[in-house]
Nucleic acid binder design. Sequence first.
DNA 1: ACCTGAACACCGTTCAAGT
DNA 2: ACCTGAACACCGTTCAAGT
Lengths: 225, 225
Amino acid sequence: MARPRKPLLSRERIVGAASALVDSEGLGAVSTRRLAAELGVSGPSLYNHFRNKDEILEAVADAVSAKVDLSMFEESDSRDWRTALHDWAVSYRAALTEHPNVVPVLARGPGRRPAALRVADAVFGAMVRAGWPPAQATRIGALMRYFVTGSALGSFARGFVDDEAAYDPCDYPHLGQAHLLAERQEEIDEGAFETGLRALLDGLAAQHETLVRAGGPGHPRVDGP
Amino acid sequence: MARPRKPLLSRERIVGAASALVDSEGLGAVSTRRLAAELGVSGPSLYNHFRNKDEILEAVADAVSAKVDLSMFEESDSRDWRTALHDWAVSYRAALTEHPNVVPVLARGPGRRPAALRVADAVFGAMVRAGWPPAQATRIGALMRYFVTGSALGSFARGFVDDEAAYDPCDYPHLGQAHLLAERQEEIDEGAFETGLRALLDGLAAQHETLVRAGGPGHPRVDGP
DNA sequence: ACCTGAACACCGTTCAAGT
DNA sequence: ACCTGAACACCGTTCAAGT
């Protein structure tokens, strides 16, 4: 065939097919050859649009980041920092749990992915505006990412095998009911996430309390990441 | 050569070589052929000792879990639940950050790995003993795992590229200093972990407060995972 | 510019053959 | 029981050749 008059591929088409493949069959199912076959072209064609396979996966990951709601961090938004952080975390987690197979790629950090950088920018900016010193704002962005990606990466409940015989009461005296975890996966993971998020925000709010008490009502503004 | 009088391989030797390879060159460097070469045997030899490559990686991961200190959860230990949880989280994270390349395997959950199951058993048992209802004890185990694995999986700081040009001030107005994050990786990730852990424990302690206030001093004991 | 087939250096795993 | 080489069906990526 060689070069067609109208390009067969585009970055968008490749990312779309790759996303579908990751979602349906997992990261392991994505090979350049398989992906190309799905698109009706030969393997090497992809290299006209992406430098390598990793670049394709990065684009897939960034499409997930783009789904994260950031409206709570806009200056015009009325939500306070705590509510904003909560709503953001919920939206962030929802985006990840909709595409759990992509989380390992996302967890590597924003890198050069624009949507991921926009997320980092928004949360850092909003925390500084709320009166957090920049170093603390950075920590908050980091610890929220730890918690959200950790919760989306591995379902806690599905991490336990659904096989009563796997939990010998002599070895694991408290895991007698562990084989039931997998059945109630969503309920358990959701509950743990909500409990943890609430605890995290309660703890941060207490810290913010002592901060404004010490620094007065004026919001200190310093630059820094 | 065929069968030697003394076996050339053992599960221990294979796991040791695989661990060294993962630590030094990453998960991607572990192929059955490469690992076998490192051990001075041919690729298929490994299949006399493990069913497949994944079983080898599981064993590598479990060796990391085995390094997590659990002494704070023993009945004879004097630490209260909050201190125990803190000390455990610190030890857990230390084990993971010593072997960051193994974290993606560990993050899949305990599965059938004995050391990982012992960890889950210990924390759940201790939380129930501390008066947490079983459902809450499960959630605590889950949310702590989210946070610790999340913090060990992807360094927050190293997730940002060390290249000032990557952060266009028009696109990311608050990331002007982001290129400096990578240099201070350890300080930032450690700070975020400590801040998050403290917030988490503060929040949980507040919840425990209202619990014992409502339920009285008697520790309710119900069974469940 | 954009696609192709051929080629290179790899994979994980199976299996019959050896001792 | 435990190791071997050969084989199968895959990989990611490069590259000259085509239009």
